[in-house]
Design a protein around this nucleic acid. Sequence first.
DNA 1: TCAACTCGGATAACTCTTGTCCGGAATACT
DNA 2: AGTATTCCGGACAAGAGTTATCCGAGTTGA
Lengths: 169, 169
Amino acid sequence: MKLSGGVEWALHCCVVLSGVTVPVPAAKLAEFHDVSPTYLAKQLQSMSRAGLVRSVQGQAGGYVLTRSADSITVLDVVDAVDGGEPAFHCTEIRQRGPLATPVEKCVKPCAIARAMAAADRAWREALRASTIADLARDVNEDAGRDVMIGVRGWLGVPAGHPLPLHATR
Amino acid sequence: MKLSGGVEWALHCCVVLSGVTVPVPAAKLAEFHDVSPTYLAKQLQSMSRAGLVRSVQGQAGGYVLTRSADSITVLDVVDAVDGGEPAFHCTEIRQRGPLATPVEKCVKPCAIARAMAAADRAWREALRASTIADLARDVNEDAGRDVMIGVRGWLGVPAGHPLPLHATR
DNA sequence: TCAACTCGGATAACTCTTGTCCGGAATACT
DNA sequence: AGTATTCCGGACAAGAGTTATCCGAGTTGA
């Protein structure tokens, strides 16, 4: 039972992106978090494919969230980076061996698969309950201040800038 | 996010073992489920180490459940075979990079780790809710009959035999 | 038009899981 | 007592999946 390590990086990136509205290059995100730039690019591409972030090419390009931070759940990010497949895959052992159950009898998943699926649902439901906006709020509460101010400053985005919001497409 | 494949085998074995009270050899369990005997032995050893099953050596030896089937949860088996480590491991990204949070400020887990831990708790709680006895009951309901009768027959355990229950230690 | 910068997919190195094998110790039956 | 059966632990090879890297395609801004 192990989750892809890139999930942690991707979530941190989402929190950062939730605090800005201009594209942020992958290289900057990597430097900010002190992680491998090329590998982080892979995670961002996965998120782009999943439609969570939009990639803006060219000079001054980078990644932007496609929706508001409170409409992106942690589950969305986990599914995008780690793949949405359930942790348990039933190999239909009941259909094998000397006392195999005939295929026509196997109309619904076996009891073991049902138990594992229920746990998987509980896990996903818990992840769906948290949004990127929730994480950003918690980070601020933990620090006791608005950390995004410092983030914007380091990224070179003028803090008081009202941000254009021009359609990127 | 992937669970060890041996978990499925181990759970099926537990259901079978819940229907008998005499030791069942690993080779028989492997043949019954049509899986690799040597690899299944590894899973059974893990369960033995975790104290879920007791191993009886020598001729007429094998594996027996150490407790009643309704006091062994699915979580117990998953932890024994897959290892009890949580799926998400926080690498403390907040302590890295140019805007790193100082160590003395990191008194509690970061917001991302908390969200993942909550999901992990939900998952484990769901697995804890199902016992081996529940699984065996569901298997019978699915089949519409007591499958353990056939299992005991194939294993060579006389169905009506009242079983000795002599102390194995 | 040109140059600089960005993402995107294909490609290699690596770790971990999966799966196998063998010698040693313990137990029951002959 | 001897033999056959069984579990246990470790070492070992193969395979999949993850981690990490590079270079080309496309876009922007001047």
